[in-house]
Design a protein around this nucleic acid. Structure first.
Lengths: 247, 247
DNA sequence: ACTGGCCTTCCGTTCACTGGAAGGACCACG
DNA sequence: CGTGGTCCTTCCAGTGAACGGAAGGCCAGT
């Protein structure tokens, strides 16, 4: 039972998600499990502060001030800024979809994505989470994740397409390959018609902080070329990160 | 006197800004104006929920969950997604810094920015606010802003560089030109060595919802070409916005 | 060993939060 | 033009959650 005021307020914020970006007061109260009167008072306070905005229609949405705050989160602050120009360079050179992802628990969290009009359509959006075993960036992140996370992921390999790897042994084998080769690949394991290459991005101390990936319709001719292009970009990101740190 | 629990919790969140991305408990309490014990309790609750994360160093930072929430804000959700591919196209064609901004009160709020390694260095960051009278996107937003906002801005034209426009009459004249021509320009009014062109982006109902701008070192040869490229992109964004709405 | 910074926990007092109830605005329907 | 259905807003007395001073623990510097 959540009794504290703060937790109730947070429950209200938590009522918003990608499928519920705008909610009426009653919907908010319902989703947060609060009495209407209580929700009303709290929501009032939240919008006065700018955490929520009220639309002309009367619906509430996440406010600008929270958007601002979110930008300060370290997930994005350092990493994303450092990586941004390199993502653009990659995108400019290939016109394919480029991804930057970090590990969030047992999933890959996409913190940046570039894709133009000509790119292969993909599921990922900025802020979305996808399973690690079926994506390029995911496999990279998994290869450098702590033991217990790997175990947990291996025990739950859900099938997404006909090509998704669902046997723990095969995935383990691939993880070993990633560590040896320095890059990971997928072939239509997440969505049909989409293959990917991904490499690790290392921080100042050499630990893997993110994964950089690219999605193309077919790997056959380009695998090696993409892998080295990605590695160059990843190196550049690392350099930017380290030089930004010592100042 | 802020007495409600919620407002105290929000004050804690508000203690973070671009210059204070990581704070110790005591620093947080100090900045939020709360007794240490109180701050401790609230911060504990906030981090349990994921609004704050605690670093190994003991400092608190904005958490992933708030980052997630921020992405749901309408500032960015619709507009930015629709605009993203067009920004890339523009960037790809020019390799100059490309901006997308909306009006936030009397300032221009940058909601997206692309810049590679070769672009002119500029001040703007995603999430930052710059004065409207000294930037290309700002002038566009001002040209379509409500009367009272214009008045307020005109009464406070701070000088940034030697070229900044500080006479209300001259700015008003420029605003008229923007409405007539459909685009705005600046010449080193915000930072030396940087000129810009910007155009309005219209929503489904024809009202101006954002401004799209580009920054280059020199306008002389390219002004007309850039203006029309921007207008094409702005058209495309509008089309995407409208088609996304009726579904 | 001492000083000064942090962080954490405890607990009796008190005051801000609670939420049912009542009222009002709006819409659609018969 | 009532009637039933949304929705939102305001009120207020009772109570339990939040408050914050105080005390104690940890670490680093001197």
């Amino acid at each position: 039972m959540s009794a504290s005021v703060t937790s109730r307020a947070l429950d209200l914020l938590g009522a918003f998600d990608a499928d519920h970006r705008a909610l009426t007061l009653s919907a908010l109260a319902r989703r947060a499990g609060l009495p209407l009167a209580t929700a009303h008072r709290l929501v009032g306070e939240l919008s006065r502060w700018g955490a929520l905005d009220r639309l002309d229609s009367g619906e509430y949405v996440i406010g600008r001030r929270l958007w601002d705050l979110g930008l300060l989160a370290p997930v994005q602050a350092g990493l994303r800024q450092a990586a941004s120009p390199f993502l653009h360079d990659l995108y400019g050179a290939t016109l394919a979809t480029v991804h930057l992802a970090v590990r969030d628990g047992t999933e890959a969290l996409y913190i940046d994505r570039l894709s133009g009009h000509v790119s292969v359509p993909v599921l990922s959006e900025i802020g979305s989470r996808l399973p690690m075993h079926a994506t390029g960036v995911g496999k990279v992140l998994l290869a450098y994740a702590p033991e217990d996370i790997v175990t947990e992921v291996l025990s739950n390999l859900t099938r997404v397409t006909a090509y998704t790897i669902t046997q723990p042994v095969r995935l383990l084998e691939q993880i070993r390959r990633v560590r040896a080769d320095g890059y990971a690949t997928t072939g239509e394991e997440m969505s049909l018609g989409a293959c990917s290459v991904a490499v690790p991005v290392r921080g100042a101390d050499g630990e893997v902080v993110a994964a950089l990936g690219i999605v193309v319709p077919d790997l056959r001719r380009v695998r090696a070329r993409l892998a080295s292009a990605l590695q160059v970009a990843a190196q550049g990101i690392t350099r930017t990160l380290t030089s930004a740190e010592r100042k």
